[in-house]
Design a protein around this nucleic acid. Structure first.
Length: 213
DNA sequence: CCATTGATCGTCT
DNA sequence: GACGATCAATGGT
């Protein structure tokens, strides 16, 4: 032969059992994995875990609603929601059916489909910005409301999570989740240390409106 | 580099 | 009627 064997990119979906665990464990193991939708592939560099019904920052904290219903279903499904009237954000549902927990996909590196990703993210100043942030990542992948509830594990799934290139513990950092007003203290944001595609930290809290007359 | 602000609308109170 | 699991543009240091 004489050909060096390169890291093979299996396009096989991670099994549902992968997601049927506590969201913090899933979050840790999602770093370095690939999110695939059509021609674009994003390798995850930053994620956030949202735990069960006791996590005040979780969309599921106040029970089932039409928006968060997918979170209460079985693991391995996509929960996509509309944020700030502008952006879509994508989560992977974790844990057993009926237990609402998820991992927010916050950032990654585009490793395939660069041309398409660039065309969807015309404001990005460089390729590291294409999927740097949850709204940007979702935009680069072309995910929208129609992907809410998508099954990631079914054969032939349109959106998949694949093996990618898992990162060692020595490359994983953790800290507080971004942009929250509740549950700020839990260090459930995980990222690949030093990676250029990791989003900047931004504290939460709503800006106070102007003084009324 | 950092801090501030407008946009924009679905969701829940 | 207020509030976001955000982004991009702007202006200052």
């Amino acid at each position: 032969m004489g050909l060096v064997r390169v890291v093979s990119q299996s396009s096989e979906s991670l099994p549902r059992a992968f997601f049927d665990r506590p969201s913090l464990e899933v979050a840790r193991d999602l770093l370095g994995r690939d999110v695939v939708h059509r021609e674009v592939v994003v390798r995850l560099t930053e994620v956030e875990a949202y735990a069960g019904p006791d996590d005040p920052a979780s969309h599921a904290y106040r029970g089932v609603t039409p928006r968060n219903a997918v979170m209460f279903g079985p693991p391995g499904f996509l929960y996509v929601y509309f944020s700030y009237g502008v952006h879509w954000c994508a989560n992977v549902v974790c844990g057993p059916d009926g237990f609402a927990s998820a991992v927010l996909l916050r950032a990654g590196a585009v490793v395939s489909g660069l041309d398409v990703a660039r065309s969807r993210r015309v404001t990005a100043r460089n390729d590291a910005e294409l999927a740097r942030g949850p709204g940007r990542l979702t935009s680069a992948l072309g995910l929208r409301r129609e992907h809410d509830g998508a099954d990631l594990c079914r054969d032939g799934a349109a959106v998949r999570l694949t093996a990618g290139d898992p990162v060692p513990d020595s490359s994983v950092s953790s800290g507080p989740r971004v942009g929250l007003t509740k549950g700020v203290e839990a260090p459930w944001r995980l990222w690949v240390t030093g990676d250029a595609t990791v989003s900047p930290y931004r504290p939460g809290g709503r800006r106070t409106g102007g003084s009324p007359p």
